[in-house]
Amino acid sequence: MELTTILFYLFSAVTLGAAAVMVFSRNIVHSAFALMFSLIGVAALYVLLHADFMAATQLLVYVGGILVLILFGVMLTNQGHNTGFRAGSVNLLPATLLSVTAAAVLIYAFVTADWAITDAEGLTETVHPLGMMLMGDYLLPFISAGVLLLIAIIGAILISTKLSDRSENSSEI
């Protein structure tokens, strides 16, 4: 067995195991940390797919950004000492049925489909071509994404501070 094969099974096990811990854990902080391991496993899978720039982006944006944001959300919306980060499950039976059905149908479709696989040897380097594409064919989506991120930042600040301002004003009146 080759090293990449072993690494693939190792990292897919890490990804899926951490995702399962995230879903079935009762403590929401444990869930957030399990999500971190799952995201790191996904980044490793990207490396195995010869997508080095995507792997770096995954680490920077997801593990460095979104996960910290989620942990902030967990801490700021902490229900206090009485619940202690608990997050129970409801609707377990229908949820299990639906997700197992979804997985079965998807896997059946994926395995039986006749994909047009080309035996490409994988690009050795993706950063340079990706940059050329971003500045060429994908210039408009790239700039729109920048504008979207700006709008999202402003919107997030407005949404998360507006209420407290208004309540202060109304209490003064």
């Binding site: 995702a19 996904v42 949820a95 639906l98 997700s99 197992v100 979804a102 997985a103 998807l106 896997i107």
Partner: peptide
């Protein structure tokens, strides 16, 4: 697919 079903 398995990751998707866990997310669902």
């Amino acid at each position: 697919a398995l990751l998707f079903s866990l997310g669902v």
